[in-house]
Computed example of a mutant assay.
Amino acid sequence: MTGGRSLFAMPLVVVLLGGAILPLVILAVISFWSVDFDAFELVPGFGLASWREVLGSSTYPTLIGKSVLTGFATAGLTALAGYPVALSLLRLPKRWKSVALVVLMTPLYTGEIVRIYAWRLVLGTDGLVNGLLMGLHLVQAPLKFILFSPVATVLALVYDELPFMTLALWIAAERLDGRLAEAARDLGARPLTAFLRVTLPLTRTGLCAGALAVFALSAGDLQTPNFLGGPSGATALASIDNLFGTAFDWPTASALALALLFALTVSAALLAMAILRLGGAVRVRP
């Protein structure tokens, strides 16, 4: 029986080795090689020049830190926006929940480039936001700093990743015993206090799952910062793409990719630990 189970696990092992472990090993090996730019050839060997360039430069660590901060900011904002939506979905009649699920996933039905250009229309000088602000006489001239800024990038990322966070919170909230929050309110707790002391701790697994998904997707997004970030749109991923392609500096690109992966993995682990350490009651409905 044990041998049979091992055979069933072999496809998963092959996928993990071929799709995850082997590419990382190849990147690690190439990161110690060098490049003959005259012949445009990789030169096998062992050297630390690429790692010194990545870790000793002020540019690459800054770009890595920027990716981490973008992931944290997007995860936090999607959690703030996702909780009210997820808790509201709980109150829907059962027959409407499937409709709500389809509506929730609607942003994912269009391509990323389509969504990005839609945001450029909304945030542009002649877009919806500036038109509304000028119509309300809050500004005298269109605001040019909204588009092609970190604000536009994070706003678009929050919109893109919100379905993942909301869905994770919704699934976790479905397992809640609603009587716990009602009991907290009956005992005099304000709605915010009841949420922080009861609902939040009881849905921390969903929050953790959603935060990790949003963090990974937003920190690893290449197109959104490129099209909406303007001068601030430079990212570690864009540098990796340029080093692998135009610059033909595969060793430095490999070292930067591994450094970025390490930073994101450590940051995601710290984020998960912080969320799972949220205190409070842990009882859920069977």
Rank of each mutant, 00 (worst) to 15 (best):
Trp33Pro: 05
Val266Ile: 13
Leu202Val: 15
Ala184Ser: 14
Thr235Ala: 04
Arg283Asn: 11
Gly82Cys: 11
Leu187Lys: 08
Ala268Ile: 03
Leu202His: 15
Arg52Phe: 14
Leu55His: 11
Phe148Ala: 10
Ser254Val: 06
Ser34Asn: 13
Asp38Pro: 00
Thr265Pro: 01
Val114Glu: 09
Leu136Trp: 14
Ala194Tyr: 06
Leu77Ile: 08
Asp126Trp: 08
Gly233Thr: 02
Leu16His: 07
Ala81Trp: 10
Arg5His: 15
Thr62Arg: 13
Gly280Lys: 05
Pro231Asp: 04
Pro231Leu: 02
Arg204Tyr: 03
Phe40Thr: 14
Thr74Lys: 04
Leu243Ala: 02
Arg175Ala: 15
Leu176Trp: 01
Arg175Asp: 13
Trp33Tyr: 15
Ser67Phe: 01
Asp241Tyr: 06
Leu69Ser: 09
Ala9His: 11
Ala255Cys: 12
Tyr117Ile: 14
Leu243Thr: 00
Thr2Cys: 04
Phe37Leu: 05
Leu217His: 14
Val13Pro: 07
Ile116Phe: 07
Val284Gly: 10
Leu123Arg: 07
Leu147His: 05
Ala156Phe: 08
Pro251Tyr: 00
Phe32Cys: 10
Arg120Asn: 04
Arg95Gly: 07
Leu22Ala: 12
Ala268Gln: 07
Pro163Met: 04
Gly279Trp: 10
Leu12Ser: 10
Ala268Phe: 03
Val154Glu: 05
Gly206Gln: 02
Leu16Cys: 12
Phe72Pro: 12
Glu161Tyr: 14
Leu22Met: 10
Val122Arg: 06
Leu187Arg: 09
Phe40Asp: 13
Ile21Pro: 03
